[in-house]
Design a protein around this nucleic acid. Structure first.
Ligand SMILES: [Mn+2]
Ligand SMILES: [Mn+2]
Ligand SMILES: [Zn+2]
Ligand SMILES: [Zn+2]
Lengths: 146, 146
DNA sequence: GAAATATTGATTCTCAATTTCAATAAATAT
DNA sequence: ATATTTATTGAAATTGAGAATCAATATTTC
C-alpha cells in the first residue's frame, strides 16, 4: 500500500498542481490528527507549526485532501464539517450522542447491501451515501436518567 | 385522525402560544405545498398571498411546524434545509440524483431494524437517524452515458 | 377598559466557507 | 541563467442560510 504522502503527491501531479511548503505542512498536520476534527481544529494545529499559514489555504488543502481520497468530510448535523482520515480506512457511518457529542463508528454489511438494492430498485446508479444515527450514549443515559 | 390544522392548534395551546393571522396563513401555505421545498420557496408562496409577511416569521413558523410534528426538515447536503409534510406520512429516507437533484423517497424495514440493532450493540438509546443515498437517476444516466 | 405578555417585520448579526486580489512563488520557455 | 507565464498564497471581503435583536403591534389576562 502506498504511503499517504505519495497518494497526495500523485494527486497533485495528475492534476497539474505543485507541492508547496504550506501544502506539505497542512498534509502533515492532517495526518498527525486523530479521530474527527473540524477545519478550525486543524488550523489551530497548523498555526502552532507556522503562524504564517492562512485559513484559506487550510480550507483549500482540505479540499485537495478530500478529492485525493486522503480525507473524508461529513456534517454531523450542526453545519460544521468534520474531517477524518480516509486512506486505508474502511467505510463506516456514525452513531452520535446528542448529549455529549461522542461519535462511534459503525458499519453494517446488511445495511450497505440493502442500500445498493434500494438504489437498484429505483434505477439509480448509487454513488455514495451518508447515514447518521442519533441517540444517547451509555454514559449520558446513566447520568441523565437517574 | 386529527386534522393537520387541529394538531397545530393543539401544539400552540399546549405551549402557551397563540394563533395569529400570519401563522394561519403560513400553515395554510405549508399544507398546500407538495414534495420537498426550501424556506425560500415557502416564503415566495406566502408573499403571493400577503406581501407583508416577513421571512423571519416564516422561519419561526417552520420551526413551530417542525416541533409540532407537521413538518420534517432535512439537509440534502448543500446546507439548505428542505421541508416536507410529516403528519400522516410514514418515515422515509431519500435517494437523491446528483445530476438533476431529483429525490426519491425510500424505506427499508430491514435497514431500520439494523439501525436499531447497531445502536443497541453500542449501548445507545436511538432517537432518530438520517440516511441519504446519492446516485444518478435513470433519466440522467440515459442522457449522460451514451 | 388597562396592564402584562406575545408576536411581528425589518434589520442586524452570526459563522462556516468561498471568493477576490495583489503579492509572491513556482514552472516553463527562451 | 533570465524572462515569461502560470500557480499559489494570505488577508480581507463576500456569501448565504438561519438566528437574534428590537421597537412597534397585537393579543391575552386582569
Ligand atoms: Mn469516523
Ligand atoms: Mn421526503
Ligand atoms: Zn453522550
Ligand atoms: Zn437525475
Amino acid at each position: 500500500m502506498k504511503q499517504a504522502h505519495e497518494v497526495f503527491m500523485d494527486y497533485l501531479r495528475d492534476n497539474g498542481l505543485s507541492m508547496t511548503p504550506q501544502r506539505a505542512m497542512i498534509v502533515d498536520a492532517f495526518l498527525s490528527e486523530e479521530g474527527h476534527f473540524t477545519s478550525e481544529e486543524l488550523f489551530t494545529k497548523v498555526r502552532q507549526r507556522d503562524p504564517a499559514i492562512g485559513l484559506a489555504t487550510v480550507y483549500r488543502t482540505l479540499k485537495l485532501l478530500t478529492d485525493s481520497g486522503l480525507a473524508d468530510a461529513f456534517d454531523p448535523g450542526d453545519g460544521v464539517s468534520l474531517y477524518e482520515h480516509n486512506y486505508g480506512h474502511e467505510h463506516h457511518d456514525h452513531l452520535i450522542c446528542i448529549v455529549c457529542n461522542r461519535k462511534v463508528e459503525i458499519m453494517d454489511a446488511e445495511i450497505e447491501e440493502r442500500q445498493r438494492q434500494l438504489a437498484r430498485e429505483n434505477g439509480f446508479e448509487l454513488q455514495n451515501h451518508r447515514m447518521l444515527l442519533y441517540g444517547i450514549c451509555p454514559e449520558c443515559d446513566e447520568k441523565g436518567g437517574h
